[in-house]
Every structure is written in C-alpha cells, then in structure tokens.
C-alpha cells in the first residue's frame, strides 16, 4: 500500500505541474484577434506617431486613412487583415469599407479647420524647430497627447 500511495503522490504532482504549465500556455496562446484588440491602434500606429485620438478626424476621413495605408504619407504602413479590423473598430469605422481600395488623398489632421484655428499663433518655423520637427509631433508641446490630453493650460512649447 505504501508503495502504491507513493506512486500516486508522484503522479498527482506531475499532473499538477502539467496543469499549471498548460494554464499558463493557454493564457499566452490567446487567439491573435483577441490579443491584438486592446492596443492595436497604439501598437500599430502609435509606434511611428502620436496615437491621435479618433475625435481628431471624421469617421469618413479615418476610413480613407485606413484604406490608403500602403501609401501613408510616403511610407508603407499597411496592416494585415486582423490588425486592420482591430484598428478600424478602435477608430469606430467599418472594417469592410476601410479595406476597400480608394484613389482619394490621405486626409491630414493638420489641415482641418479646427487645427489651424487652435494653432494660429504657432509659426511654421516653430513647428519645424529641431525639438518639434513636425506638426504631427503632438507630444513635443502636449505632454499628455498619447493619452488623448490636449489641455491648453498644460502646453509647453520647447525652445
């Protein structure tokens, strides 16, 4: 009996280790579309520029942005179908329309009327300064830009 219970205990320990390991593996092996969902926009788009909040463009404009990612302001920013669908959902546009081809020019946030109005006291030279480099670099002056915060009182223009 003693021998038998000893073997049983070893068996039980091995199975427990296997169960813990598999549970860990199951968490790591979430299907791609679920794993990519929460931060798809920050991950795919925010790597090269500020993760501009969806409210900065109209949904119809975002649709054109997503449909022209293969020629995105001079670079190839194309996404695979899973990532594109996740980003489209985060920007609240229809993934099917966003993947349809279009010949329209990519809309620019910096050419929207509200943007020009809000930045009318900033010169082209200030936008091109080494610390800022581009009007696309929101973070240079708006420290909370990556969190969607553009409060006028927290603006710090680097010199």
């Amino acid at each position: 009996m003693r021998t038998r219970s000893g073997i049983c205990r070893i068996d039980w320990i091995v199975w427990s280790i296997a169960a813990v390991f598999l549970a860990h593996a199951a968490v790591a092996a979430v299907p791609p579309n679920q794993a990519i969902e929460p931060d798809a926009y920050a991950e795919e788009c925010g790597a090269c520029h500020t993760a501009y909040p969806a409210r900065l463009l109209r949904p119809a404009d975002w649709t054109v942005v997503l449909a022209t990612l293969d020629r995105h302001f001079g670079v190839d920013a194309s996404l695979d179908a899973t990532a594109l669908a996740a980003v489209a959902r985060q920007l609240d546009v229809d993934p099917a329309v966003a993947s349809a081809a279009t010949t329209k020019a990519t809309p620019r946030i910096t050419q929207q009327g509200w943007f020009r109005e809000e930045h009318d006291e900033i010169s082209a030279q200030q936008f091109r300064s080494p610390a800022v480099r581009s009007a696309a670099n929101c973070n240079a002056c708006h420290a909370g830009a990556d969190r969607g915060q553009f409060d006028e009182h927290s603006v710090r223009i680097p010199r």
Binding site: R4, I10, D11, V14, W15, I17, A18, F21, L22, A29
Partner: peptide, 17 residues
C-alpha cells in the same frame, strides 16, 4: 500509473515553447 506519469510528462514537454 507510470504510464500516466509518462503521458503527463509528454504533455508538459509538448506545450508551446
């Protein structure tokens, strides 16, 4: 019993790297 332990060990090794 040994066979069961062997199966468990195999499952352990076959889990995703």
């Amino acid at each position: 019993m040994f066979r069961k332990a062997l199966v468990a060990a195999t499952v352990l090794l076959a889990a995703p790297a």
